[in-house]
Structures are given as C-alpha cells and as structure tokens.
Design a protein around this nucleic acid. Structure first.
Lengths: 137, 137
DNA sequence: CAGAATCCCGTAAGATACTG
DNA sequence: CAGTATCTTACGGGATTCTG
C-alpha cells in the first residue's frame, strides 16, 4: 500500500493525507486509538497479523506526524501508552468518510454478479484483493 | 504506497477504500478524471513522473473496481478514453475530505518550528517523507 | 496511440532472536 | 512489557523495447 512514500507534488493534497494514514496498518491503529488510548501490547493483540516491528514503525511514523502521542511510564515492567493527539482527532471525519465509502463499495460488490471482472482481460493473472495469505489484517 | 493489498478483515472498511484509492498514482488519476474524461496520452502528460506501464496497471485496477470506464474507439491510430463511472463519482466527497485534511496538515506542519521531529529518537535514521529521488509525482 | 513483454532493482515488510 | 537488531525475501515499481 501500500501506499508508498508520496510527496506533495502534483498539486493534490490528497496524497499528503494518504501518506499519513495510508500506511499498511495505520488505519486499523487509528481506528482503535480513536476510541481510547491503548498500550503497546494491547495493540499487538488487536492486530494479530502484524509484527511488533511493523507496529513500532507505524506508530513512530504516526508520532512523527503529530497524530499520536506516546506516553512512557518509567516503571518496571515498562508501560507505554499511545493516544491520539488533538490534531490526530481531526482525522476522525476523514476516517469516517473512508469507512462509509468502503461499506458502500462492499455493498456494490456484493450486489453485482461479478460482471466487471472480465473487462479488458490482461495477460497477467488478475489478482483481486481477495488475499489468501494472511499478511494482512 | 503503498498502500499495499488489503483485505476487509479487522472490521474496518477504511482499508477497503484505501485499497481502492490508495494506489500510488490513483489519487492523481482520479483527481484528473473527476473533472472530465481523458484519453491515455493526456494522462501520461498529466502525470509526467509515471510510466505508461504504471498508468496502465493503475487504470486497470480502477476499472476492475468499477471506478473508471474504459472506452475504446476502434480507429487507427487507436483512441482510448477513460472516465469515471457513476459509482466512481461517489468517491468525490471522499477525495475532497482527504484533500481538505491534507491541506490542514500542511498548514499545521508549516506553523510549527518542527518541534515534533526529535521525539523519541530511534536508532535508525529517521527518514521524513521529504523524498529526494523523484520517483514520485 | 495505447499498450504488452521483459528485465531489473530497491525497499517494504515478514520471521526470528535478543534486551533493558 | 516494549521494544531493537539482523537477516531474508517478495513484489512494487522503473526503464526499455516491441507491436497492432
């Protein structure tokens, strides 16, 4: 998805937003943090298909983007909590918008008897986003 | 980006939308097609930093997702036009939402004197999304 | 003009092990 | 518990060439 790294050229600020929320696990992370703060281990459980590494990386990016705040409690055992910043919370309507369209897309997909599948068939086998291997959550 | 391939698990339809519009060039393509239909060569000119290959691939995916329609005029030289389907046009508010937040993000970024940069410094050198190499449009 | 076919490469991301 | 460190692999994407 990923969306890869984008910059703000092409005169379209859409890409900027996508570069922030478009990470592979970020939508899900944000989705969970939207409701309440979570600590690291909770997130790993909420995203069983990712690795700690990925989770850390994505959280660090979100932190660097000013979306989430990271609170370290100097305890033993350590405790770290992540929560949305006020600015991060301004993403809510965007996420909701995305979510709604996603649902309408699913409805649309469910209703048609897959007539669109065979349009202008390519030579390479068309992989729909029905993933088999579970590298995705 | 990319966004990569996502499926609809994790109970979050946001990913579905991102899997549709999250392609590396899709936002820009959609942005241009939002206004009017374009033919292939026009799009290559509008996206100077991509290749025909990428453009074709992205367009094919959008087509398979029912977002764009592909009209082939059996002429010589050939002529192919792409336009949004009615369903594709329902993406407009989503794109606008994304665009607006992207702008507010840029404003936010511009206003702070980069104090967020050094939070919880990692060992690996933090690469911000300030791309140097121009594989991005 | 609108692609398809090939070749090639960098990096995102998975798996695993280790640590304060 | 909350991460790093390291290795490895897959595949997204670039460049180039060929064709109806």
């Amino acid at each position: 998805m990923r969306p890869k790294r984008l910059d703000s050229k092409s005169g379209c600020a859409v890409e900027v937003t996508l570069s922030v929320i478009g990470g592979l696990w970020k939508p899900v992370i944000l989705f969970h943090l939207m409701h309440e703060k979570k600590r690291f281990m909770e997130l790993t459980r909420l995203l069983p298909n990712t690795t700690q590494r990925m989770l850390t990386l994505q959280l660090r990016e979100l932190e660097a983007d000013g979306i989430v705040a990271r609170h370290v409690y100097p305890q033993v055992p350590p405790k770290v909590e992540y929560e949305l910043t006020p600015f991060g919370k301004t993403l809510a309507p965007v996420l909701i918008s995305l979510r709604q369209w996603g649902e309408s897309y699913q409805a649309q997909r469910a209703s048609d008897i897959a007539p669109i599948q065979e349009v202008s068939k390519p030579t390479t086998t068309r992989r729909r986003r029905t993933n088999t291997a579970g590298h995705v959550a």
